[in-house]
């Protein structure tokens, strides 16, 4: 175990350093993503002002705002660049550098990205949660922060990130067939934003669709942690949901190993 961390922690340190070196990129990216969130906030505000009651399909405007911003920060943190990074390395051949060293390819990617994520949690998640709680306090006039739910939310977010990571590793292998990773990434992100409920809460979908989508791996990426944060799930549902996340994590982990094996037989790097 100690050896394991001694091998892979330097990758995390590299991740942190990369993050700090390109800090303006990160900040601009965060601001850009926030803009979409602000647009959605105003759209929802207009929706609530245009509708008859004070709730919209069981959500109040306060719920909706919390959902919007927590869902935004969760999807942001659990987003994994693994697909693009792996794809680029397969294409330009630098993947061999990971193959000839006595390290596991997925762990090197994982630890490198985790380094950057630690910084993001500090810069993005903490202030966002403080703002959301302050907002809730201003609107409702009482503190409703539940540390147990918050810890479960964090745990569920970590699971969500790992599911996302291994899903993206599997997806990254499409680089064997496609050159236009940008386009296929737009396609993937669009589908995920819909199926994961980050665009429209799954609770707004027709019941049949809702139960299907909740079981699919995409709900594990952000919807489950957000629902836990908002206190929408009871104890039993939380337990089941996290079990589901663990199941998908295992499934994508196994799949990525399988594809890696098959892919290594096919991999053909030109020159060097």
């Amino acid at each position: 175990m100690r050896r394991f961390f001694r091998t892979y922690l330097p990758f995390s340190r590299a991740g942190v350093q990369m993050m700090l070196a390109y800090r303006s990129d990160f900040l601009f990216h965060l601001i850009g993503e926030m803009l979409m969130c602000i647009v959605m906030y105003f759209v929802w505000l207009a929706v609530f002002e245009s509708s008859d009651g004070s709730t919209f399909m069981g959500f109040s405007m306060t719920d909706m705002t919390v959902y919007l911003f927590i869902s935004f920060v969760t999807s942001y943190l659990t987003y994994s660049d693994g697909a693009i990074a792996l794809g680029e390395e397969i294409r330009d051949g630098s993947i061999v550098m990971r193959m000839i060293k006595p390290v596991k390819f997925d762990m090197t990617f994982l630890f490198q990205e985790l380094g950057g994520r630690t910084i993001e949690v500090i810069i993005a998640l903490v202030p966002m949660c403080v703002c959301v709680e302050a907002y809730k306090f201003c609107v409702t006039g009482s503190v409703m922060f539940n540390p147990v739910y918050f810890l479960l939310f964090l745990l569920s977010t970590v699971l969500a990130y790992l599911v996302s990571f291994y899903f993206n590793v599997c997806y990254g292998f499409t680089a064997f067939f496609l050159k236009n990773l940008w386009g296929s990434n737009v396609l993937k992100d669009a589908i995920i934003s819909f199926l994961s409920g980050s665009r429209i809460p799954l609770a707004f979908m027709p019941p049949v669709l809702q139960s299907v989508l909740t079981f699919l791996p995409f709900a594990s990426l952000s919807y489950i942690p957000v629902m836990i944060y908002m206190g929408m799930y009871d104890g039993m549902t939380i337990f089941k949901s996290m079990l589901l996340q663990a199941f998908w994590l295992l499934a994508f982990w196994a799949l990525s190993k399988l594809i890696w094996r098959l892919a290594m037989k096919r991999l053909c790097v030109q020159g060097g």
Binding site: V43, V47, F177, L178, K179, N180, W182, G183, S184, N185, V186, L187, K188, D189, A190, I191, S193, F194, R199, I200, F204, M205
Partner: peptide, 24 residues
Amino acid sequence: VDFLTGMLGFIVYQTINLIFLWVI
């Protein structure tokens, strides 16, 4: 294939926004 994925990506992205409007 790349051309089709790229184009499909943008079509799907916009369609999802439409579903959002439709739900509202």
